[in-house]
Simulated scan of single mutants.
Amino acid sequence: MGTVTTQDGTGIFYKDWGPRDAQPVVFHHGWPLSGDDWDNQMLFFLEHGYRVIAHDRRGHGRSDQSAGGHEMDTYAADVAALTDALDLRDAVHIGHSTGGGEVARYVARATPGRVAKAVLVGAVPPIMVKSDANPGGLPIEVFDGFRASLVANRAQFYVDVPAGPFYGYNRPGAQVSQGVIDNWWRQGMSGAANAHYHCIKAFSETDFTEDLKQIEVPVLVAHGTDDQIVPYEDSAPLSVKLLRSGRLKSYEGLPHGMLTTHPDVLNPDLLAFVKE
């Protein structure tokens, strides 16, 4: 574990496990979580001989609670600072939800040789919010509701999201894990309210269309068809069409948080793509 200091003086916390000469796999978490959300996948890839790295986005988890920089350009620059500090080469970057947007922006701008492949899981690209250019998106009122709930009672909001749509626990017959809900709450409440508030705009209104077009490395786009946070039809299929070398993997009936609810399904698919 360690900390990288960015150009504006923000400390970015990261975990770095495994052989230093092994291929790096870098994990990018969703809102409002931390690198801990990837513990299952990090242990899985560690057992298969990879070097695994996960950072806490600025204002999230154990990273500094900065006053500003809570938008995608700065998030991507923070990742660049981390990869430069660790001198990561031929890395695979895997991002979930907001982290998928972070991956798209970083990989599109990365120094040649830094990135070998990328994976977007339940990711926000190309763009979430509804507009004339994106008629299938979610209305801005949805995200205004997120902001209002965060301001009114962040602690309760961070119970309601994982207990409901995030893991599909609001679906009939769902096998609910209180530990998973509590861990989501723990990660969320460890971050900064200002960072989480502004990150809602970053993940919902950022347009990643040009980023996706610029990415040259192979990209796996994995998405559950019952994703209630980032609806399937307005995300994964559209992203694949924009990528130069994209592959779509759909998971019938799986929720947004499928990496946690179904790691036995997702992890082997991730490993197979990385090993190709």
Score class of each variant (00 low, 15 high):
G2S: 00
T3N: 05
D8Q: 10
G9P: 02
T10S: 06
Y14L: 06
P19I: 08
D21K: 07
H28F: 13
H29Q: 02
G35D: 02
Q41F: 01
L43Q: 14
F44S: 12
E47R: 14
H48N: 15
H48S: 04
R58A: 04
G59K: 04
Q65K: 15
S66V: 01
D73F: 00
Y75Q: 04
A77N: 10
L82T: 01
A85M: 05
A85V: 00
L86I: 10
L86K: 00
L88Y: 05
A91D: 05
T98K: 01
T98R: 00
G100I: 02
G101M: 02
A104N: 02
R109E: 13
A110V: 02
P112W: 03
G113M: 01
R114I: 03
V115L: 03
V119H: 04
V121M: 14
A123C: 09
M128H: 08
M128V: 15
N134W: 12
G136T: 10
G137A: 05
G137P: 07
L138Q: 15
L138F: 03
G145K: 09
F146H: 08
R147M: 12
S149E: 12
L150E: 05
Q156W: 13
F157C: 10
A163Y: 00
P165G: 10
P165M: 06
F166P: 03
F166G: 01
Y169G: 07
Y169S: 05
N170D: 14
P172F: 12
P172A: 08
V176T: 08
Q178L: 12
Q178G: 06
V180P: 03
I181Y: 07
Q187S: 11
A192Q: 12
A192M: 07
A193S: 13
N194I: 12
N194D: 13
N194M: 10
I200G: 09
T209A: 04
E210N: 03
L212T: 05
L212N: 03
I215G: 02
P218E: 14
V219Y: 02
L220W: 07
L220S: 09
T225E: 06
D227A: 08
D234L: 11
P237A: 11
G246R: 10
S250M: 07
L254F: 14
L254I: 04
M258A: 12
L259M: 14
T260W: 07
T261F: 07
D269N: 11
D269Y: 08
A272R: 15
A272C: 09
A272H: 11
F273M: 11
V274R: 05
V274Y: 10
K275V: 12
